[in-house]
């Protein structure tokens, strides 16, 4: 699908997702969404899969090393050369992950950023390394939410942390979504938002607490245990295997903070 009117038809056939945290269920099922996305050209569908894989939690969960996640992200950014806004979106997503990974490492007692080039991505790595002891990692002027994330992580309020993280990701998507209405980027941003809404809709407080306990237990094995998670994203034993579906899972600060 390449002609503008076909994108218009596809975009208008997708229901409005609404504001974050306001819906208890997704307005369109995964089955229906995949059905509508079959209007996409095969190469666009492949790019969309790659984009979802590298931004969704389950997609990167298959990698046990942070360096593999970073390599995959760079590959996907290269593949998206014709879509600079999607490249920026992947970059921003990886930078957010880097910040959360840094907060987690610091919470776990790491005294310096260490070899941040092997687990961090983007323009803030040097600043994070230089301001390791600052609650906001020296990013207070650029990302005011980092200090709040630090406070939530220290207090162990993982659900609020998840909410904060998803809100930031949603804002990134809203920012780039404003620039596109009826094109491939608009469809890709819709799908990324759908992934987050779908993930949040599956949460319930009780289930989250139960899951939290499972993850804490799993995390006691340590992040570098065989088959364990990468620092950048984490991995939980009860997650569905990656690649099971097009939109297997969204990013999860909850898992990120716990692994």
């Amino acid at each position: 699908m390449s002609r503008p009117h076909q994108y218009i038809m596809l975009v208008t056939s997708l229901p409005h997702l609404g504001k974050m945290f306001t819906r208890k269920e997704v307005p369109i099922s995964e089955f229906r969404l995949k059905q509508r996305l079959s209007m996409l050209r095969p190469d666009h569908l492949r790019l969309l899969r790659e984009l979802v894989e590298v931004t969704a939690w389950a997609g990167v969960a298959r990698y046990s090393l942070d360096s593999e996640v970073l390599r995959r992200a760079r590959e996907v950014i290269g593949d998206l050369k014709d879509y600079p806004d999607l490249q920026h979106l992947v970059g921003a997503r990886m930078e957010t992950r880097t910040v959360i990974a840094a907060l987690r490492r610091r919470r776990d007692g790491q005294e310096t950023a260490g070899d941040i080039e092997n687990w961090g991505f983007g323009r803030w790595c040097g600043r994070i390394a230089n301001h390791w002891s600052d609650p906001g990692l020296g990013l207070g002027n650029f990302m005011p939410w980092v200090a709040e994330a630090h406070r939530l992580m220290q207090s162990g309020n993982h659900i609020a942390m998840e909410r904060l993280s998803l809100t930031q990701i949603f804002r990134q998507l809203d920012h780039y979504g404003m620039l596109h209405e009826f094109d491939f980027e608009a469809v890709a941003i819709y799908v990324l938002r759908w992934v987050i809404v779908e993930r949040w809709s599956r949460y319930s407080e009780d289930a989250a607490r139960e899951r939290l306990q499972l993850l804490v237990t799993a995390a006691l094995g340590g992040p570098n245990a065989p088959g364990g998670p990468s620092e950048l994203d984490g991995m939980a034993a009860d997650e569905p295997p990656p690649g099971q579906g097009l939109f297997a899972d969204a990013s999860s600060a909850l898992q990120e903070t716990l692994s």
């Binding site: 009117h5 076909q6 218009i8 975009v11 208008t12 056939s13 997708l14 229901p15």
Partner: peptide, 14 residues
């Protein structure tokens, strides 16, 4: 009409 009609068709799906 093609642009607006495509939007109308898409909207009818939803």
């Amino acid at each position: 009409c093609t642009l607006a009609g495509s939007a109308a068709i898409g909207a009818m799906l939803d």
